[in-house]
Structure formats: C-alpha cells, structure tokens
Nucleic acid binder design. Structure first.
Lengths: 214, 214
DNA sequence: TTGAAATTCAAACAACTGTTTGATACAAAT
DNA sequence: ATTTGTATCAAACAGTTGTTTGAATTTCAA
C-alpha cells in the first residue's frame, strides 16, 4: 500500500512521473523505454512495477499528474476576450504555444496531441476527458464567427482545420525545417506563426460565413 | 546475385514488396514486423534478408517500387486547370484522395506522409526527391493566388496550412471519428471534405492577399 | 543427365524490453 | 531490540523481433 509521508517513497514516485512525462511526450508510449525512464529518475528498473504496476500504470499516472497540473488553465481562451475573432486568436496562440514550448504546464496538451495522432490504451479516457471539451470550446468560437445559421458539420470541420494546422508544426518538425529553412521554433516566431494561422483561418471562416449568407 | 527471369525468384521479390508496401503504410517502419510481411507474402522469414539484405533494404525497395508506380501522375494538379484557384482545388482533392483512398497509385503519397510525420533513415531521400517537388508545386499555386508581392515566407506557410489540414484527417482518423461521429471516409464524403478545405483555404488566401494589397 | 548457382526453409541466434523474483536495507511500531 | 511492513536493487526471466546459418531444394546451363 501507498505511503504518503514525504519520504523516499514519494520521491521515487515523483521522480518517475517526472522523467516518464518527458520521455512519453518525446517518444510516445511504445517507443519510451522503461530503462531510460528509470535511469533518468535515478532509480531501479523494478521501481516502475513496484510503484505503478507496470508501464501502462505509469503512463496513467503521468496523465493524471499532468492533468492536475494543467486543469486550472486548460481552456482560458474563451472567457477573457470578447469578440469571437479575438477568442479564436487567443485559442490558437495558446494551443500552439503549448504544443511547441517547454513548459511543464503544457505537458497535458502534448499528451493529448499524441493520443489524437497515435492512440494508446488511454485514448478513450484522454479524448473523452480532455480533447472533447477542448474541441467543444473551439466549436463554440467557430459558431460565434460563422453565425447561428452555420451547420454543425461546418463548425466541426473548421475546428479541425485549425487543429490540423497547429498539429502539423508539432508533428512534422523535421519536414518543416527542411521545407522552410528560415523557420525557427523560437517563442517570437511561434507568435508570428500563430498570427498566420489566425489570419488564414479567419479569412477562411469569413468566406464560409459569407457564402452561407448569400 | 539477382536473376531477372520471370521465375519464382521474381515472384517472391514481388510478393514481398507488395505485402511490405501495405504493412509499412499501415503501421509505419518500426511497427511493421518482418514476420507479418513474410506471412502475407507466403514466403520464409529469411527471404527478406536474402533478397533485400534486411528490413531497411526492403523498405528502400518499397519506396523505389511505389515511386515508379506513381511517378507518372505525381503532380497532375497544375497543368490542366487554368486559374490558380482551380489548380488549388484540384491539388487538394488529389492529395486528400491519395491519403485516404485504397489505390495502389496512392501508396507513394502515403509513404511520403509517413516520412514527414515520423522520419526514418530514408527521410532525406524521400523528402528531397518527392516532398520538396510536391511542396514547390503547391508554393507555385499559392503564389498564383497571393500575387507577386507576397513574401516567400507567407507562401510557404499557406502551403503548410493546407498540407496540415489534409494530414490531420489521415493521421488522426480515430479522433476525427470520435469528435465528429457523422464523419465518413467514403469517397463521396472525401470529396466534400476536399471542398471544405478548399473553400476554407481559399478564403484564408484571399484575406491574406487583400491584407497585403491594403 | 549432371553439376554449380540460386533459392527456400526451419532452426537457432542475439539484442532488446517489460516483468518478476528473492535478497537486502530501511523505517516505524511494539 | 525485535518485528513488521515498505522500499530498493541486481539478477534472472520471458516474449518479441531482426538477423544468421546450414541444410535441402530448385533451376538452369553445359
């Protein structure tokens, strides 16, 4: 049974979750090797099975841990800004930053992105609990721009057009670097990229809204 | 040494390349198991090493073989249509179809898409020889719509916005199905999806072109 | 037909990787 | 101090997977 005193036990658990978070995010569930995780956590190979029952248990703990860290500001994009156009800009900037920066707060977004593109046993949990709400938020913003007459189908496809653009820059990093040698993943350039995706998408949305109006 | 007569040798080589094409495309290089490939090819485990020198050699042969099959109509989008807007529609429809249909002709596009998202040892070859030309074609179309005053950077980002949308529907299939239960990967719906991406992107491009003009 | 080269095959090999084991160390409680 | 439960560790285990081996078979030219 688990012991919550601040002793070595908790330290090992914590160190394991920390290094596992990094390695799962970097390489994905299948390619992440337990031996690499325990080495980085400065503990023994058997520790994963002892504390988490196995690799899958560790992965579940990683999701739970990072969900708790991110839950506070998971969807901050909507409430603050007023016009849906500004909500969208904020949503895109926030999402893209999380996919591409190094913050601990952003880990859950990266885990979700992984599950979306290469599902594991935790797919249903992660999508149901995190991806669906995020998507619903974006759908709401899309509807705000497209207007009340837009069909649900059109709304969802616009959301996916935006998500798709953002994910591309995360998943296809090496190809991006080759196809656009000037491109940099610096914070400043990520801002500029978010602006491009926002401008591009806003143009697309307005065109769709207009077409529907005619 | 290789013998080109139409005997059992060539049959085995051919069957191996065929089943390997399917399995590499379906699961990716790392997850494709030689034992599955040889079983589907109805031959022995050692055949891969005998005929191709190893898994990597087989993968290289798969790329070469499918490149030869697709080379004839790799970039047919540009020449036929006149207006760049129509070129773009055709490009998107063709690319999306190839990513999502079951044609043998489309295999090379799927292999390229895999390399873009999860590079293997063949990344440089594949990107240099196939992805770069495809991208240049699309860049040309983008420039046709954006006008001569658009910066190279803007052109490239628009290309990537389009590619990103298309790749999303291929790579995130399971998430798409969950987030949009009505969505179907039927040929008819793929056409409609291509229309959406085209409309959305055309709106974005026109907005960018206009902003530049002002 | 015969013999050499090419091909196929079952088996073994070797490296990798998640899991289990049994011994040891440590902590807190009686 | 002894006991008990917890934690750590090195080692072994078991399954998977790419590769190699050596014998058997087939092919084909002389």
């Amino acid at each position: 049974m688990r012991n919550l005193q601040p002793d070595q036990t908790m330290d090992t658990r914590f160190r394991l979750i920390e290094s596992a978070s990094e390695i799962f995010i970097e390489r994905g569930f299948k390619e992440a090797k337990i031996r690499d995780i325990v080495e980085q956590a400065k503990t023994n190979l058997a520790a994963v099975n002892y504390h988490f029952g196995g690799k899958e248990g560790l992965y579940a703990a990683v999701i739970q841990h990072n969900a708790a860290l991110a839950i506070q500001d998971m969807s901050p994009a909507v409430s603050e800004a007023r016009a849906p156009e500004e909500q969208m800009r904020l949503y895109i900037r926030t999402f893209l930053k999380r996919l591409l920066d190094d913050n601990i707060q952003s880990r859950m977004s990266k885990l979700i992105a992984r599950e979306v593109v290469e599902p594991t046993a935790a797919f249903n949990l992660v999508v149901e609990q995190f991806a669906v709400p995020l998507h619903k938020t974006l759908n709401g913003i899309m509807r705000g721009i497209l207007g009340p007459n837009a069909g649900e189908e059109s709304v969802r496809r616009c959301s996916m057009s935006i998500i798709g653009q953002c994910l591309y820059y995360q998943r296809a990093r090496r190809a991006v670097q080759r196809l656009d040698p000037d491109f940099s993943y610096s914070p400043a350039n990520i801002e500029r990229l978010a602006d491009h995706i926002s401008d591009f998408s806003l143009g697309g949305l307005r065109a769709l809204a207009q077409r529907r109006a005619s």
